[in-house]
Every structure is written in C-alpha cells, then in structure tokens.
Measured scan of single mutants.
Amino acid sequence: DEEIEKWIETLLKRNISLRVNGKDLEIGSEEFKEWVEKFIKEV
C-alpha cells in the first residue's frame, strides 16, 4: 500500500526507532521489517 510505504519512508528519513511491545525496533532492521509486514497484514 502506497500510504504505508510513504509512512515507512518518512520514518526512515527521520531515523526513528519505534517502541513495539516494550522493545526498541531499529528502523530498517529485520525485526522492524517483520513488524511492518505483520502490521500491514492486520490493517
């Protein structure tokens, strides 16, 4: 979905790490990609 890709790009540009389930996810890491894929499937 384009919306999500733009959102991810924005996050990448800002180099933010997300806190997911109490863990810091490094943007661009494998864990982050897995989380994004799960997130996309749920939406």
Rank of each mutant, 00 (worst) to 15 (best):
D1R: 14
D1N: 11
D1A: 13
D1S: 10
D1K: 14
E2P: 09
E2C: 15
E2Q: 13
E2K: 13
E2D: 11
E2M: 11
E3Q: 10
E3N: 06
E3H: 07
E3V: 08
I4H: 02
I4S: 03
I4W: 14
I4P: 05
I4C: 15
I4T: 04
I4G: 03
I4V: 09
I4L: 09
E5S: 11
E5C: 11
E5F: 13
E5T: 11
E5W: 15
E5Y: 14
E5L: 14
K6L: 06
K6T: 08
K6D: 08
K6E: 09
K6Q: 09
K6G: 05
K6F: 11
K6P: 03
W7D: 00
W7E: 01
W7Q: 00
W7K: 02
W7Y: 05
W7P: 00
I8Q: 01
I8W: 10
I8L: 13
I8G: 01
I8V: 04
E9K: 07
E9Y: 05
E9S: 07
E9I: 11
E9N: 04
T10Y: 15
T10M: 15
T10R: 11
T10L: 12
T10F: 14
T10V: 10
T10I: 14
T10E: 14
L11M: 06
L11P: 00
L11S: 00
L11D: 00
L11Q: 01
L11V: 08
L11N: 01
L11E: 05
L11I: 12
L12R: 03
L12I: 09
L12H: 02
L12A: 05
L12G: 02
K13V: 13
K13F: 09
K13I: 14
K13G: 09
K13Y: 10
K13H: 08
K13R: 06
K13P: 03
R14K: 13
R14N: 15
R14F: 15
R14Y: 15
R14P: 15
R14W: 15
R14M: 15
N15V: 15
N15Y: 14
N15F: 13
N15C: 15
I16V: 11
I16W: 01
I16F: 01
I16Q: 12
S17I: 12
S17Y: 04
S17V: 12
S17W: 12
S17G: 08
S17L: 12
L18M: 03
L18G: 01
L18W: 04
L18K: 01
L18S: 00
L18H: 03
L18I: 14
L18C: 10
R19G: 04
R19H: 11
R19D: 03
R19I: 10
R19Q: 09
V20G: 02
V20F: 03
V20C: 15
V20S: 03
V20Q: 06
N21A: 02
N21S: 05
N21T: 01
N21K: 06
N21Y: 05
N21I: 02
N21V: 02
N21D: 08
N21G: 02
G22L: 10
G22F: 04
G22A: 01
G22H: 02
G22Q: 02
G22D: 05
G22I: 04
G22T: 01
G22K: 02
G22Y: 05
G22V: 02
G22S: 02
G22M: 05
K23W: 06
K23H: 07
K23L: 07
K23N: 06
K23P: 01
D24T: 08
D24G: 02
D24Y: 12
D24A: 08
D24W: 12
D24R: 06
L25D: 02
L25K: 01
L25H: 06
L25Y: 06
L25T: 02
E26Q: 11
E26T: 06
E26Y: 09
E26S: 06
E26K: 10
E26L: 08
E26M: 09
I27F: 08
I27V: 13
I27E: 02
I27M: 05
I27K: 03
I27D: 02
I27W: 05
I27G: 03
G28P: 07
G28D: 08
G28M: 08
G28F: 11
G28C: 14
G28S: 03
S29Q: 11
S29E: 03
S29I: 08
S29Y: 04
S29K: 07
S29A: 06
S29P: 05
E30D: 11
E30N: 11
E30M: 12
E30Y: 07
E30K: 13
E30A: 13
E30Q: 14
E31R: 07
E31C: 10
E31G: 10
E31Y: 09
E31I: 08
F32P: 00
F32Y: 06
F32I: 03
F32V: 04
K33Q: 07
K33T: 06
K33F: 15
K33L: 13
K33G: 03
E34R: 14
E34L: 14
E34H: 08
E34D: 12
E34I: 07
E34F: 11
W35Q: 01
W35C: 14
W35F: 08
W35A: 08
W35N: 00
W35P: 00
W35K: 02
W35D: 00
W35V: 02
V36H: 01
V36M: 10
V36K: 02
V36W: 06
V36L: 13
E37K: 11
E37Q: 13
E37Y: 13
E37I: 14
E37N: 10
E37L: 13
K38N: 08
K38M: 08
K38R: 10
K38V: 08
K38S: 07
F39E: 01
F39R: 03
F39Y: 09
F39S: 01
I40Q: 02
I40N: 00
I40S: 01
I40V: 07
I40C: 13
K41P: 00
K41E: 05
K41A: 07
K41F: 06
K41T: 07
K41N: 06
K41I: 04
E42V: 08
E42T: 10
E42H: 08
E42G: 09
E42Q: 10
V43I: 13
V43T: 07
V43N: 05
V43F: 14
V43K: 05
V43P: 03
